Amino acid sequence: MRLRRSVTALLCAVAVLLLGGCGTRVAGGASPTQTGPIPWTTFGPSGVTGARIGADHRTLSLDTRVPSGEHPCVRDLKAVDTDAEYGTVPGTVHVQITFSSPSGDRRSGCTKEKTATVRVRLPEPLGKRELVVDNDIVFTADGAEPPALRLCGELGCHPPATGCTTASYEQAMITVDAPMHSYRDAEHCDGKWLVLDFSWRTGPACDADDKNPACTSRLGDRYFFRAERAGWKPFFESAAGGCRAVQRREPAFPTALCASLEPLSSALHPSYPPPSPSGGSPTPR
């Protein structure tokens, strides 16, 4: 027993030298770096939700998303006209928003977001130029109700009008978040209604003349759209052929656009055999 106590005392003494104390460190506890000061880092906003132009046509007020929490989470919030530093692009004005925050460290408690407004004065009136914030958020005064500027979409500030055109179909593909490198397989359009079939390859990358069936395997989808002021608006998705499914959802959908539709399972996946009654190879959708 005496020997055991001596060994224990010796081990504790070694631990004191190594850890600064015996029995005071808990497994999984914070390290000195974890308990040190929380750094403030420069960030850009997660989003810019609005922009307004002042009566002088030069002062911009930008609504931006910034971190928030129980303690201060933002300082040095500012917007800067970067054209003077990086050069101008005809027809545009570029502004960059930055701020400092400890939100990169969750110990700061800055785990939420709020809207803050930041202002910047341009060296000359905005005029008809587009406002580009943080390189990819674009506003325009064209078609907006002053003092607000209009937020432009993925197709720019002046997207193509709804109609039976290639540009219009591309807008519809973006609306339904079609996978990258999708192919438009068929369009049925009358200007007010649209059926759009598209597919994307799922097999390996192959040469154009490769006969391997796996190289032509695809998945596909079919959407039905209604024309609205903002562009094509999807209202139904279905792989079924004919009109029954879509007209059950929207009785006004014209029969002329759906009567000839084939089920996608047979139209888009020729390299896959149909499922057998015994539950053989499934036809992907």
Rank of each mutant, 00 (worst) to 15 (best):
E187S: 12
K192I: 00
L151C: 00
E145D: 12
G242L: 11
H181Y: 14
R218F: 02
F236R: 02
G153C: 10
C206M: 06
G153V: 01
G191L: 08
K128E: 14
D209H: 14
P234H: 10
R129Y: 05
D197G: 03
H181T: 07
T111C: 02
H158W: 08
T111R: 10
A144D: 05
D190W: 05
A148R: 12
A141T: 12
T140L: 08
P146F: 05
R184P: 03
F236E: 06
A240D: 14
L151S: 07
K114F: 00
L122K: 01
V138K: 09
I174R: 15
A208M: 10
A214S: 13
W193C: 00
P234T: 06
Y169D: 13
M180I: 08
D177I: 04
F225P: 06
P160N: 10
W200D: 01
V246Y: 05
M173T: 08
S217T: 11
R226S: 15
R150Y: 01
D134C: 13
D190V: 05
T162E: 12
G203P: 06
T111M: 07
A230D: 13
S199H: 02
T115P: 00
R249H: 13
T166C: 02
C157H: 02
V118W: 02
S238C: 10
P179Q: 10
V133T: 12
D142C: 00
L131W: 07
D190K: 08
F224T: 08
K211Q: 14
D197F: 00
R201E: 09
A208G: 01
V132Q: 04
K233G: 01
K192L: 05
P160I: 02
N212F: 04
P204V: 04
A214Y: 02
P146C: 09
K112C: 00
S168Y: 05
T111N: 13
D207S: 15
L194W: 01
F225Q: 05
H188Y: 14
G203N: 05
E130Y: 06
A208H: 09
I174V: 15
